[in-house]
Computed example of a mutant assay.
Amino acid sequence: MRSIVIEPEYEAWRAAARRLLAEGVAPEEVLWVDDAREGSLFVQEEAAAMKAVQAGGAVKVPPAFLDMARSAAAHTDARRWGLLYRVLWRLTLGAERHLLAMATDRDVRQLQDWCKAVGRDIHKMHAFVRFRLVGTDDATGREQFVAWFEPEHRIVRLAAPFFEKRFAGMDWSILTPYECAHWDGTRLHFTAGVPRSSAPDEDALDDLWRTYYRSIFNPARVKISAMQSEMPKKYWKNLPEASLIAGLIAESTQRVQGMLETEERVVKPAPNNAYLKALHAMNGTEAADGTQESGTP
């Protein structure tokens, strides 16, 4: 049995898997360990296995598997490295080139389930990260923000490009227990995870979030079970607007009744505007009698 100790990252697994595959090491002969602190519990990997793979030993791997492996590697299930290598072996040396198309295969189904879980976690991170202003860089004048998030899986590297694109104009850090992402306007880099105490608690932006959330809360469309499905309670403690939810729900019945009792407002006629007429014409807007609407009362 060969013990392979790697960092818990896709790139580390890929490098080790390439070496093993080039040497023809079967999946059942490998024990994967993704925590270097536990390495002493196992027989260390032979030095020969760490040698670079010769160019002639390369094998073709379906691109679809690489995408799946990158996502599944972010899952926290300790079995992921072994299963990924087994599927890789089957696709290449096992000559099962069409394995990924077999939805009933147990290994393929497990990878798909892990990918779905990771995808949901990324979606939650995109939705529930809240940045807090911590200062301004004296040299560049750029505002600096920090956010805290607690993902279920190691998704920081997969989720970070979204924030890089959306918040390119400010310096920011996203801190998590697994890993932290940092953007300085030119470079995205990652550091080790940190505890919750490393993140700021509140700033003036929290009041803005609460004001915004209160303004968009629609009491007529409250569905508590659906809301908690999309925004599970475990995220609430890190969302400044979450403190309003209980009160807004409690007030929802009264607010809906008030909306029902409010008299309808008279609909104002569309203005006689040449630009609006042109838009109506472009959209093919027609009156009930089949003639083009003029936009006049």
Rank of each mutant, 00 (worst) to 15 (best):
residue 100 L to W: 01
residue 101 A to I: 00
residue 101 A to M: 04
residue 101 A to E: 11
residue 103 A to F: 06
residue 103 A to H: 09
residue 104 T to D: 12
residue 104 T to S: 13
residue 104 T to C: 01
residue 105 D to I: 00
residue 105 D to G: 03
residue 105 D to F: 00
residue 106 R to T: 11
residue 106 R to Y: 03
residue 106 R to C: 00
residue 108 V to A: 01
residue 108 V to P: 01
residue 109 R to S: 04
residue 109 R to G: 02
residue 110 Q to M: 11
residue 110 Q to S: 04
residue 111 L to C: 03
residue 111 L to A: 03
residue 111 L to D: 02
residue 111 L to S: 02
residue 112 Q to V: 09
residue 113 D to I: 11
residue 113 D to A: 15
residue 115 C to G: 02
residue 115 C to Q: 13
residue 115 C to A: 14
residue 116 K to T: 13
residue 117 A to Q: 14
residue 117 A to P: 01
residue 117 A to M: 12
residue 118 V to M: 06
residue 119 G to C: 04
residue 120 R to Q: 13
residue 121 D to M: 02
residue 121 D to Q: 02
residue 122 I to Y: 02
residue 122 I to A: 00
residue 123 H to D: 12
residue 123 H to M: 06
residue 124 K to T: 04
residue 124 K to R: 14
residue 124 K to L: 09
residue 125 M to V: 11
residue 126 H to E: 13
residue 126 H to C: 04
residue 127 A to S: 14
residue 127 A to K: 10
residue 128 F to P: 00
residue 129 V to Y: 00
residue 130 R to E: 05
residue 130 R to T: 04
residue 131 F to E: 02
residue 131 F to R: 06
residue 131 F to D: 04
residue 132 R to Q: 14
residue 132 R to V: 06
residue 133 L to Q: 10
residue 134 V to G: 04
residue 134 V to F: 03
residue 135 G to C: 05
residue 135 G to P: 07
residue 136 T to W: 00
residue 136 T to F: 03
residue 136 T to I: 14
residue 136 T to N: 07
residue 137 D to H: 12
residue 137 D to V: 07
residue 137 D to N: 15
residue 138 D to W: 08
residue 138 D to T: 08
residue 139 A to D: 12
residue 139 A to C: 00
residue 141 G to E: 08
residue 141 G to P: 07
residue 142 R to P: 00
residue 142 R to H: 11
residue 142 R to E: 10
residue 143 E to M: 11
residue 144 Q to F: 03
residue 144 Q to V: 15
residue 145 F to D: 01
residue 146 V to Q: 07
residue 146 V to M: 08
residue 148 W to N: 02
residue 148 W to S: 03
residue 148 W to R: 11
residue 149 F to D: 02
residue 149 F to K: 00
residue 150 E to F: 02
residue 150 E to Q: 12
residue 150 E to N: 05
residue 151 P to N: 05
residue 151 P to L: 02
residue 152 E to D: 14
residue 152 E to H: 13
residue 153 H to D: 03
residue 153 H to T: 01
residue 154 R to K: 12
residue 154 R to H: 13
residue 155 I to K: 03
residue 156 V to P: 03
residue 158 L to P: 01
residue 159 A to C: 09
residue 160 A to C: 09
residue 161 P to E: 08
residue 161 P to H: 09
residue 162 F to Y: 15
residue 162 F to G: 01
residue 163 F to N: 06
residue 163 F to Q: 07
residue 163 F to M: 09
residue 163 F to I: 08
residue 164 E to W: 08
residue 164 E to C: 08
residue 164 E to K: 15
residue 164 E to I: 03
residue 165 K to E: 13
residue 165 K to Y: 06
residue 165 K to N: 10
residue 166 R to G: 02
residue 166 R to A: 09
residue 166 R to F: 03
residue 167 F to I: 05
residue 167 F to Y: 15
residue 167 F to D: 07
residue 168 A to W: 10
residue 170 M to V: 15
residue 171 D to E: 15
residue 171 D to H: 15
residue 171 D to P: 00
residue 171 D to S: 10
residue 171 D to T: 14
residue 172 W to L: 11
residue 172 W to G: 07
residue 172 W to V: 11
residue 173 S to L: 08
residue 173 S to K: 14
residue 174 I to D: 03
residue 174 I to W: 06
residue 175 L to N: 06
residue 175 L to I: 12
residue 176 T to D: 07
residue 176 T to H: 09
residue 177 P to N: 09
residue 177 P to G: 07
residue 177 P to Q: 11
residue 178 Y to F: 15
residue 179 E to L: 14
residue 179 E to T: 12
